[in-house]
Lab assay of single mutants.
Amino acid sequence: MTYKLILNGKTLKGETTTEAVDAATAEKVFKQYANDNGSDGEWTYDDATKTFTVTE
Rank of each mutant, 00 (worst) to 15 (best):
M1N: 14
M1L: 12
M1T: 14
M1F: 14
T2R: 06
T2I: 14
T2A: 05
T2Y: 07
Y3C: 03
Y3E: 03
Y3S: 02
Y3P: 02
Y3M: 02
Y3Q: 02
Y3D: 03
Y3A: 01
Y3W: 05
K4M: 06
K4I: 12
K4D: 03
K4P: 02
K4N: 05
K4V: 09
K4Y: 14
K4L: 07
K4Q: 05
L5H: 01
L5K: 00
L5P: 03
L5R: 00
L5E: 03
L5M: 04
L5A: 01
I6G: 01
I6Y: 06
I6L: 06
I6F: 06
I6R: 05
I6A: 03
I6D: 03
I6Q: 04
L7F: 12
L7V: 07
L7H: 04
L7D: 02
L7E: 02
L7K: 00
L7Y: 10
N8W: 13
N8P: 05
N8L: 13
N8G: 05
N8I: 15
G9C: 13
G9V: 10
G9N: 06
G9M: 14
G9R: 05
K10Y: 09
K10R: 11
K10T: 13
K10D: 08
K10H: 12
T11Y: 14
T11W: 13
T11R: 07
T11L: 12
T11M: 09
T11C: 15
T11E: 10
L12R: 07
L12G: 12
L12S: 13
L12N: 11
L12A: 12
L12K: 10
K13W: 12
K13E: 06
K13H: 10
K13D: 05
K13G: 07
K13Q: 11
G14E: 11
G14P: 05
G14K: 14
G14D: 09
G14Q: 13
G14F: 15
G14A: 14
G14M: 14
G14N: 10
G14R: 14
G14W: 15
E15D: 05
E15H: 09
E15A: 07
E15M: 10
E15V: 11
E15Q: 10
E15L: 06
T16S: 06
T16H: 14
T16L: 15
T16W: 15
T17A: 06
T17N: 05
T17Y: 13
T17S: 11
T17V: 08
T18L: 12
T18Y: 10
T18H: 06
T18K: 03
T18Q: 04
T18C: 15
T18G: 03
E19P: 04
E19A: 07
E19G: 04
E19T: 14
E19S: 10
E19D: 09
E19W: 15
E19R: 12
E19L: 14
E19Y: 15
A20M: 02
A20N: 02
A20D: 02
A20H: 02
A20Y: 02
A20L: 02
A20P: 02
A20I: 02
A20T: 04
A20V: 03
A20F: 03
V21M: 13
V21G: 08
V21T: 11
V21L: 12
V21E: 11
V21I: 13
V21Y: 11
D22C: 04
D22R: 01
D22E: 04
D22W: 01
D22Q: 02
D22L: 02
A23F: 13
A23V: 13
A23I: 08
A23S: 09
A23H: 08
A23K: 13
A24K: 11
A24N: 07
A24E: 12
A24R: 07
A24W: 09
A24H: 09
A24C: 11
T25M: 10
T25R: 06
T25E: 13
T25C: 08
A26N: 01
A26I: 01
A26P: 00
A26H: 00
A26G: 01
A26F: 00
A26D: 01
E27I: 07
E27P: 00
E27H: 10
E27V: 05
E27M: 14
K28R: 12
K28Y: 08
K28E: 08
K28A: 13
K28G: 06
K28D: 05
K28N: 07
V29G: 03
V29M: 08
V29P: 01
V29W: 14
V29Q: 06
V29H: 11
V29C: 07
V29I: 14
V29S: 05
V29N: 05
V29E: 06
F30G: 00
F30H: 01
F30C: 03
F30M: 01
F30R: 00
F30V: 00
F30A: 00
K31R: 15
K31A: 05
K31W: 06
K31G: 02
Q32K: 13
Q32C: 06
Q32F: 04
Q32D: 07
Q32M: 08
Q32N: 07
Y33M: 05
Y33H: 04
Y33A: 02
Y33L: 06
Y33Q: 03
Y33E: 02
A34D: 01
A34T: 08
A34K: 03
A34Q: 03
A34R: 03
A34H: 03
A34W: 12
A34Y: 09
N35S: 14
N35T: 13
N35I: 15
N35H: 14
N35V: 15
N35Y: 14
N35W: 14
N35K: 15
N35A: 15
D36E: 13
D36A: 12
N37W: 14
N37H: 14
N37I: 14
N37S: 10
G38E: 06
G38W: 10
G38L: 13
G38R: 07
G38Q: 07
G38Y: 09
G38I: 13
G38P: 03
G38S: 06
G38N: 11
S39G: 11
S39L: 15
S39M: 15
S39H: 15
S39E: 11
S39P: 07
S39A: 15
D40M: 12
D40F: 14
D40I: 14
D40G: 10
D40V: 14
G41V: 05
G41C: 07
G41A: 04
E42T: 12
E42I: 14
W43I: 04
W43M: 05
W43E: 00
W43K: 00
W43A: 01
T44L: 07
T44R: 08
T44Q: 08
T44S: 12
T44H: 12
T44I: 08
T44D: 08
T44N: 08
Y45I: 01
Y45W: 03
Y45T: 00
Y45A: 01
D46S: 05
D46K: 02
D46M: 03
D46I: 03
D46R: 02
D46H: 05
D46W: 03
D46C: 08
D47E: 14
D47S: 11
D47Y: 07
D47W: 07
D47I: 07
A48L: 12
A48S: 11
A48F: 09
A48E: 12
A48I: 10
T49A: 05
T49E: 05
T49H: 06
T49C: 04
T49S: 09
K50Q: 08
K50W: 04
K50F: 07
K50D: 02
K50V: 02
K50M: 08
K50E: 02
K50H: 11
K50N: 07
T51R: 02
T51P: 00
T51C: 04
T51N: 01
T51L: 03
T51Y: 01
T51G: 00
T51F: 01
F52K: 00
F52W: 06
F52I: 00
F52A: 00
F52C: 01
F52L: 01
F52M: 00
T53F: 10
T53C: 06
T53Y: 11
T53G: 01
V54N: 01
V54E: 02
V54I: 11
T55V: 08
T55F: 08
T55E: 06
T55W: 11
T55M: 07
T55N: 09
E56F: 13
E56C: 09
E56P: 10
E56D: 11
E56A: 10
E56T: 09
E56H: 08
